[in-house]
Design a protein around this nucleic acid. Structure first.
Lengths: 237, 237
DNA sequence: ACCTGAACACCGTTCAAGT
DNA sequence: ACCTGAACACCGTTCAAGT
C-alpha cells in the first residue's frame, strides 16, 4: 500500500530543523520503553519520527550503535546524593536503590545494558563517586578494585536478573503450566522446595513466572543489599 | 547461486533418521558457541544441519523458543558436589564457582539466560539443593526465600555482567579510543579514579574494554564471593 | 550537512504439498 | 510423523541522488 511508504507523521513536512543524534537516541529510548526492544526497528523508529529509515544512519551509524547509546541512557537520570554527614554504607544503599529504580524505569533496555560493555566514558563521574566512598570506607589498591567490582556487579547484575522477561514468544498461559509443573513435583525427592513452595512460588528466581517488572522483588533486594553491606563491613578490619 | 539452496550438507541424503528436538537444540548451542548469537539464524542452523529451514519449526516451534531452550542448557552440565562433611559456606562457594565456569563455557548464551525468565522446571533439582543447604545454615521462611534470591541473583547476575561483550557493531580500535578517553580525564575533578587508574583500567566494570570472556575477573569474583558469604554469616545469629 | 528513494541481501514464518 | 519448496512480509544497510 502506498499509504505506508514515506514519512507523513507529525509536522515534519516542509523544511524542518535537522535531526540530531541526541534526538534520535531519545526517540529510541521512548520507543523501546513503550513497544519493547524487539519492536525497535530502524524502519519503525523512522516512521515514528516522520523521516525515512536511511536518514537515521547519518546520525547513529548503525542499529547496534543506536541500541548501545539508548541503553547507556538508563543510568543517566541518576543524581547521586551528597556524601556529607552520611555513613558510607547508607550512602551505598541509597545509590543502589537509585540504580535499581532507574533500571525499573527502562526494563526493556536493561538486558542490553547488562550484557554489553560500555564503550564511552559517560559513567566516569558515577565511578569516581563510588570509588571515593569506598576509599573513604578504608579500601585501597586491589582491594578497592575488587570491592568496587563486587558492588557494581552485585547491584547491576542482581537487578538485571530481577527484570528478566518471558521469551518474546511465550503464548499466554504458559504460566499456568509452569505453576502446575511446580506444584506437581515429588515431595519425597524435593522436600525443602515442597515445604517452602507457598512462599517461593512466583517469588524466587527459577520458581517465578512473572517478571520483576510486574512483580518487584523489593524485600529480597533489601536483604541482598543488607548482606552486601554486612559483608563489606566484615572485610574492613 | 543455486549452490546455496537446499541442504546438501553431511550425510543426510537418502532416508535419514528423523531429527529430534534435542538434536536441534544441541546444534543451536554449538552454533551459538562457535559463531555468536547474532549469527544463529534458523536458515544458517538448518544449513549446518543439512536440512531445510522450515524443518526446524516442526521440532522447536519458533526461534525464540529455540534460543530459550539453548540458553537453558548453560547450567545443565553442572553436577553439584556432595554436602557431606563440608560446611554450608564452602559448599556454596564451590557451587558458585561451578555456575561461573558453566557460564564461561557458553558466554554467547549468557545474555539470554540472564535476561529471560525460566519457562520450564529443569532447574528444580538445582533449586532444591541450594534451598536445602541454606535451610541447613539456619534460614527459614521468608528469610530463606530472600537469602536464596540474594545468592542466585548475585552469582548469575554478577557473572552475566562479567561476560558483557562489546556491541556486535564495534569497529576494531574503539578500545584504543576508550582507553585514551579514560587516561585523558581531568585529575582534579576525578582524583580517586586518576590515582587508581593503573589498577582499574581494563580491570573494573565501566572502566574496562575487554570482556570477561577474554579477561576473566577471577580475583574480583573471589572477593565478591567472600563478601557474600561473610554477609550471610553475619545474618545467622 | 542532511535527507530521499531505490535497491540488495538477508531474515522469521506460513502453508500447501509431498512421503 | 516429518520434511520439502515456494511464498510473504518483513529486516538492516548501501549508495547514488537530491537540496
Amino acid at each position: 500500500m502506498s499509504e505506508s511508504s514515506g514519512p507523513r507523521n507529525r509536522a515534519r513536512q516542509g523544511s524542518r530543523a535537522p535531526l540530531s543524534r541526541e534526538e534520535v537516541v531519545d526517540a529510541a529510548v521512548r520507543y523501546a520503553d513503550e513497544h519493547g526492544l524487539e519492536a525497535l526497528t530502524m524502519r519503525a523508529l523512522a516512521k515514528e519520527m516522520g523521516v525515512y529509515p536511511t536518514a537515521l544512519y547519518w546520525h547513529v551509524g548503525s542499529k547496534p550503535q543506536l541500541v548501545a547509546a539508548a541503553s547507556a541512557r538508563v543510568l543517566d537520570g541518576i543524581v547521586l546524593p551528597s556524601v556529607h554527614g552520611v555513613n558510607w554504607d547508607v550512602w551505598l544503599g541509597e545509590v543502589a536503590r537509585l540504580c535499581r529504580a532507574a533500571m525499573h524505569r527502562h526494563p526493556n533496555l536493561v538486558p542490553i545494558m547488562g550484557s554489553q560493555l560500555a564503550v564511552s566514558t559517560t559513567a566516569v563521574p558515577f565511578v569516581e563517586r563510588i570509588l571515593g566512598v569506598l576509599e573513604g570506607a578504608g579500601f585501597t589498591g586491589n582491594d578497592l578494585v575488587d570491592v568496587y567490582n563486587t558492588v557494581i556487579g552485585f547491584v547491576l547484575g542482581w537487578v538485571t536478573l530481577e527484570l528478566s522477561a518471558p521469551p518474546s514468544d511465550a503464548e499466554a498461559g504458559w504460566q499456568k503450566g509452569f505453576a502446575a509443573e511446580l506444584r506437581g513435583i515429588d515431595p519425597n525427592t524435593f522436600p525443602v522446595l515442597t515445604r517452602n513452595l507457598p512462599l517461593l512460588e512466583n517469588n524466587a528466581f527459577l520458581t517465578r513466572w512473572e517478571s520483576g517488572r510486574d512483580r518487584p522483588m523489593d524485600r529480597s533486594f533489601d536483604v541482598a543489599l543488607d548482606v552486601l553491606v554486612r559483608g563489606l563491613h566484615s572485610k574492613i578490619i
